[in-house]
Computed example of a mutant assay.
Amino acid sequence: MNNGEVFVIGLMSGTSLDGVDLVYVKFDKNKYQNFDIIHSETVSYSEKWKSTLQEAINFSSDALKDLNLNYGKLLGEIICDFIDKFQIHNIDFVASHGHTVLHQPQDGITLQVGDGQIIANAIHQKVICDFRTQDVKLGGQGAPLVPIGDELLFSNYSYCLNLGGFSNISFNKEGIRIAYDICPVNIVLNFYANKLGLDYDESGKIASKGKINKELLAALNALSFYKKAPPKSLGLEWVKEIIFPLIDKLETDIPSILRTFVEHVAMQISKVIVGSNSVLITGGGVFNSFLVERMEFYAHIKITLTSSKIIDFKEALIFAFLGVLCSVGKVNCLKSVTGASKNHSAGEIFYPNRK
């Protein structure tokens, strides 16, 4: 860190498996809101890696250890390519989220693969990663972690909503930051679009032509998770155990599945943001214009989109920021959000070539 500025590469891989998001960011240490995303890129996964990460939830403990190392090597290669491509010379450290394979906080388990030591050795840089484990050990959900960034970087918005594999929301209520997962989004929509040979349903065009299955919609809206008070979080396990079997039992026509699930997502999200025109919406779901239209319909609002860099790379940006806070021992994980026993500074630091 130098001259009141810190230069960080941040990495994020989401549950929708779009790829690895990378940002090179400059932060003003005296006023964090003064940040600049200098370079950004999404590196898509090969079909082999996408398949591996999809199936990792079923791996043995030994296979997960190997995956942790091999995925760390992959991230090291991706970061090196990013540095070379943009001719980046000034780096204080790299902050990596890794990729979530297991998330069962109720059982004290959360696993993000991507070994920090492997990455540090590959890129010859300091690496900060493993931001969730400590929170789970402190009795928290280990998620969501982005709200500290919402609080300190985007406080001019009433709500910060992310539409990724899952939708999550963050807002300040009576001086306390509240945040939680609302419902699955792209992790379900993309799964059924894949069955049509597509990566995703572009702009929600297929969904818009489907028919709402009222029985399925009612069953989805009646799921017990939606009655729980926050803090609460979702994982792939829950989708596989609850959502997919329910959908497959009640509907087989994919356009109708997509149409019904879009309606479900819009209804769940609108309960939170109803009546507010001060909503920052980010994540890949923003480009599903049909979903956004249905959210506007139920929430009785008009959604104005922010810059494409923030839409696409906000999570990578905030993991870079979590690294900044961790590097100086400042709180980057809020008990009001995760349910942990205390606020704390999460993240493990690795230095290159440590024996």
Rank of each mutant, 00 (worst) to 15 (best):
V94T: 08
I318D: 01
T100H: 07
I269D: 10
L111D: 07
I212Y: 00
D201Y: 04
G164T: 09
E5D: 10
L74Y: 14
I303A: 10
Q87T: 08
G165E: 08
N343S: 09
I206C: 03
Y32W: 15
P352I: 12
C129S: 15
N68C: 02
N288G: 05
I37W: 11
K26S: 15
S170L: 10
G197M: 04
V265I: 15
I178D: 00
H89Y: 09
V337C: 05
G149F: 00
Q134P: 00
N332L: 00
S270I: 10
H300F: 05
C326E: 13
I242H: 13
G275T: 11
G10R: 12
A143E: 05
I281S: 09
V292H: 06
N90D: 14
A179H: 07
G165A: 11
I178K: 04
L138F: 14
L334S: 02
K314F: 11
K228S: 03
S233P: 03
T110W: 09
V146I: 15
Y71A: 09
L258E: 02
C333N: 15
P231R: 02
G347H: 09
G98T: 08
I118S: 11
D150G: 06
K342Y: 07
V43T: 15
A219W: 00
I349L: 07
Q268Y: 04
H39G: 03
G210E: 01
G4I: 04
M12W: 12
S44A: 14
A56W: 08
K342P: 03
L258S: 08
D36V: 08
G283T: 05
P147K: 00
I128L: 05
I242M: 10
Q117D: 14
N353K: 13
F27S: 03
C183L: 07
N172G: 05
E251K: 01
L246V: 02
D84N: 15
Y24L: 10
F297H: 14
T42R: 15
I88T: 09
N168C: 11
I318T: 13
K126L: 00
K126D: 00
S270F: 05
E348G: 04
L152F: 12
A143D: 04
F321T: 07
G139E: 06
G284L: 09
F171Q: 05
G116S: 08
V23M: 11
L223S: 01
Y45H: 13
M1D: 05
K271Q: 15
V292A: 01
L223T: 01
G114H: 11
S203P: 00
C80W: 02
D150Q: 04
L223F: 01
L102V: 13
V286E: 10
A207G: 15
L220Y: 04
K65E: 13
I310T: 13
A266D: 01
S13F: 01
F350G: 02
P352R: 12
W49A: 07
D21Y: 09
I128G: 02
N190G: 00
L189Q: 11
E296D: 04
V136R: 03
T133Q: 12
L250D: 06
I273A: 12
I118F: 06
F171N: 07
W238A: 09
G323K: 12
V185K: 00
G140H: 02
I148E: 00
I9Q: 04
A266L: 02
I254T: 01
Y157D: 07
Q112G: 10
A229L: 14
Q125I: 05
K26D: 06
E348Y: 06
L280A: 10
F350A: 03
N2T: 12
G197S: 06
M1P: 10
D130P: 08
L64E: 06
F59Y: 15
E202I: 01
N58D: 14
